[in-house]
Each structure stands twice: as structure tokens, then as C-alpha cells.
Nucleic acid binder design. Structure first.
Lengths: 225, 225
DNA sequence: TTCCGTTTGCGTTATTTTGACACAAACAAA
DNA sequence: TTTGTTTGTGTCAAAATAACGCAAACGGAA
């Protein structure tokens, strides 16, 4: 038996699908590469995984140093290993996806280098590597997840109105929902509560602000939308 | 930038959760290790991933050479990277789970080395590495999956009766279901059809044989059981 | 002020789905 | 024939869902 680390293994990387919600649209952070391969092409942010860090730590490192994002929702998505997915050689990528709330999104937008941009998921450019496939998998996961876990709140501010929440759901699910039925199902699920405040200063009737109540959270529900 | 494969990367492995269904019980293939670490302890079958093979190929290799199983259902589960999950060093494992039908199960049972055994999921011994965690994740995935994809049929023979199918569902879900409601929901989902044959030779009323009909498959349904 | 267009909040009703049963049919064994 | 057990089919009340009406609360125009 040879020494342990002399085994020839594929290289290990992480790629990140960072979702944000702004201007009534779900969007993704893309990075314009300055180096080959795919020079000047758009890709997901990613990096190789070091010997001393976990996958999550590698993701946090990317989020922090490349994008200036901290303490946001992060989840492992899938591990991609198509043979020629990276022209440089054999690289296996453990893809993750992250959710950025509106508050943090706007706060960081200015700090970002001009080679990092938000793209609405409805208008994604050609992506390098197999990142189009990764992005599609992330969207599918998010679609499924939003129906049984309170993950959508990671994309909104602490306080949000029912119409705002509904528009988010519609963006992610890709179809429109009846206002009144949506409201009823969300309230029945029982993980939001009224704050008592209203969204004033608008043109129409003020909307009630709601709050994601972690104490009431059933941690497992099922929305039929 | 150093030569590509001089990056220090964690070692990459695969571990397999092979599910079988026999004697009205869901069971898992476990391997008794002949070498350290966890010598004489039970673990999931696994192997390191070579440079020239995909993850799926590595899994097929294990299934074929170690267990004598071919062309069975295989799916990626999750990638485990807890720092000290392997006492030999930093190993990241892309766990998969496989489903073996009763026919193939019995055909191969005899060929298996005596250090490989089926264990009912209700009676699992202490496992090495983080394999208990992997097994639990696989069970959870299977529980969820059986409700919206026709994956349970991979565990049965081509022809099966409704009571057999129900018992399988009950084993995986972990709770009993009303016979009549179960039948109705399965038939409403519309991916099984009567073969016309009956399971004769038993003590009681013969049960109708059903068939998993791939042509009728909606590929996306939702069972509420 | 009054009227209008728009959005929000709250409700109703018909339909569908679900959960909990009852009962007869088909076998083997007594 | 009778009994015990399992399978196939149907019923019915309760719950969940989809579709929809209507008044309240704003800003802006008349």
C-alpha cells in the first residue's frame, strides 16, 4: 500500500451559485474571467479546495474575499464530474448555492469589482465550463426547496410584505399564483407573523409588514402552490 | 501559477449505500473490513476515485467487482467532508446510493464473499468512518424520493402485487398506510398497470400483478401518503 | 372636496382531494 | 360447509383546494 497521499486523485473545486432578489427579479452573481480558460467569458465564482479547509469553508472564502459577502445562507448542491468539464484537466466540482438578502446585496454592490455582475435568471449569458448546467440544477433545487423550507426569507429583508413574498415565490417557481390563496397558504403554514407596521408612502393601500418567526417554525411543511 | 496537478487537494472517494428489499424489510449491504482502519468493523462499500474514471464509473466498479452487481439504479447522494471522517487523512467522499431489485439480489447473494452481508435498516451495527451519517442521509433521500419518482420499482421485480408495493412503501416511509387509500393514490398517479396475471398458489385470495409502465410515466407526480 | 384607478386585505362558494370505514370475493384449511 | 385470512371495490363525511367578489386604503386627477 503506497503512502496515503500519493494516490492520484482528481482535483477538487467548488463553484457557487449566488442568488439574489432585486427589482422584482431573481438574479445570479456571475464573474468575468481575466484568465484562460474562458478568458473574458462569464462563469460562476469558484475555487480549488485546499487541504486544510472544508467545502463550506472554501465557499465562505470565495464569498468573503471575491464577493465581500458574509454570514449568508449556504447549501451544498451537487458534485459535477463530467470528464472534460474543465479544459485544464480533471477537476471535480462540489457545487453550492447561496442566498443573499436584499439588505446585504445593496450594501455590497458598490464594493464589487466591475468584473462581477448580477444577471437576472431570465437573461443569462453563455457560461464557461459546465456552469449553465450547475445553474439550472441550482434553480431546480431552489424551486423545490422553497415549497417545504422557509428558505425564501434569506432573499428578503427582515420585514417584508405579502405581495413582496408572493412575487419572490412567483419568480422562483416561474408561474403566477392567486393572491388570496397564496396569502392563506402562507399564513396556514404558520411561520410568519404580523409586525404591526405597514409599508407606508406608496401610491396605494399600505401593505402589512410580516416577519419570519423562527420560534413558530415547524421546520417542515408543504406548500402546494 | 504552478503546474496544474501540483495543487494539493484532498483525496477523493466514493461510498455506496446499496438498498435491497427482502423478507418484507428494507436492508443495506455492509462490508466487514479486513484492513485498518476499522479492521473487523462494518462499513459501507467504497473506494478512491481514479483519475481516469467518473464518479459513476467508480461506483459501478465497486458494485461490479466487490459486490457482483450490474446495471442497477444509481444516484449521487451528497458529498461528505467532515475534517476527521477518515483517520488516514483528508478524504472527501461523494456518497451514492443504489437500488437492487429482488431478482438480482437473490441471484448475487451466493457469490458474495462472507464479509459482505445484508442488514435490515432497523438493525444496523456500529459503522466505521461517518457511514452512519451517510446511511441516514440515504434513507432520508429515499423516503422523499419515493413520493415523487417511481424509484421504488427498482427494488421490486418486474411484476408485483399491490400489497407488496404497499409493504415496500411502508418500510421506507416508516409508517403504515390504509390499504384502500394507498391503492387509489397509486392508481391515480398512473404509472402502473394490470398485467392480467395473478399471484396464485397462496393461501388466500390471489393478488393482481401490476407492472411499472414506463410509457405512461408522468415522470413527475406527488404522492400524499 | 369628490371621483377614479390601483393595490391590499378579507371573505365566500363550488369542486376536488383526503381519511376513515364497510363489505363482498377468493382462496386454504378445518 | 364453515372458518379464517387476505384481496379487490365502493361509500361518505371532512378537509383542502381553486376560483372568484368586494370593500378598504392610498395617490392623483377633476
Amino acid at each position: 500500500m503506497p503512502a496515503f497521499h500519493t494516490y492520484k486523485n482528481p482535483a477538487l473545486a467548488t463553484d457557487l451559485v449566488v442568488f439574489g432578489y432585486q427589482d422584482k427579479a431573481l438574479s445570479v452573481l456571475l464573474l468575468n474571467r481575466k484568465e484562460a480558460p474562458f478568458k473574458n467569458g462569464w462563469t460562476l465564482p469558484g475555487a480549488f479546495v485546499g487541504l486544510e479547509e472544508t467545502l463550506a469553508e472554501a465557499c465562505r472564502r470565495i464569498l468573503d474575499t471575491k464577493l465581500g459577502l458574509r454570514s449568508i445562507y449556504l447549501e451544498q448542491l451537487y458534485t459535477f464530474d463530467t470528464p472534460n468539464r474543465d479544459p485544464r484537466g480533471r477537476v471535480i466540482s462540489v457545487a453550492h448555492f447561496a442566498l443573499v438578502s436584499q439588505g446585504k446585496l445593496t450594501a455590497v454592490a458598490g464594493k464589487m469589482a466591475n468584473d462581477v455582475r448580477w444577471f437576472p435568471v431570465t437573461d443569462i449569458p453563455v457560461l464557461g465550463f459546465d456552469h449553465r448546467q450547475i445553474l439550472s440544477a441550482a434553480q431546480e433545487r431552489l424551486r423545490a426547496k422553497i415549497l417545504y423550507q422557509p428558505v425564501g426569507f434569506e432573499l428578503l429583508d427582515e420585514n417584508f410584505t405579502m405581495p413582496e413574498l408572493q412575487d419572490l415565490y412567483e419568480c422562483i417557481l416561474g408561474h403566477s399564483i392567486d393572491r388570496r390563496n397564496f396569502r392563506r397558504k402562507i399564513l396556514d403554514a404558520g411561520f410568519v407573523e404580523l409586525t404591526g407596521e405597514k409599508k407606508e408612502g406608496l401610491q396605494n393601500r399600505p401593505a402589512d409588514y410580516y416577519n419570519f418567526n423562527k420560534k413558530l417554525l415547524p421546520q417542515h411543511f408543504h406548500l402546494n402552490l
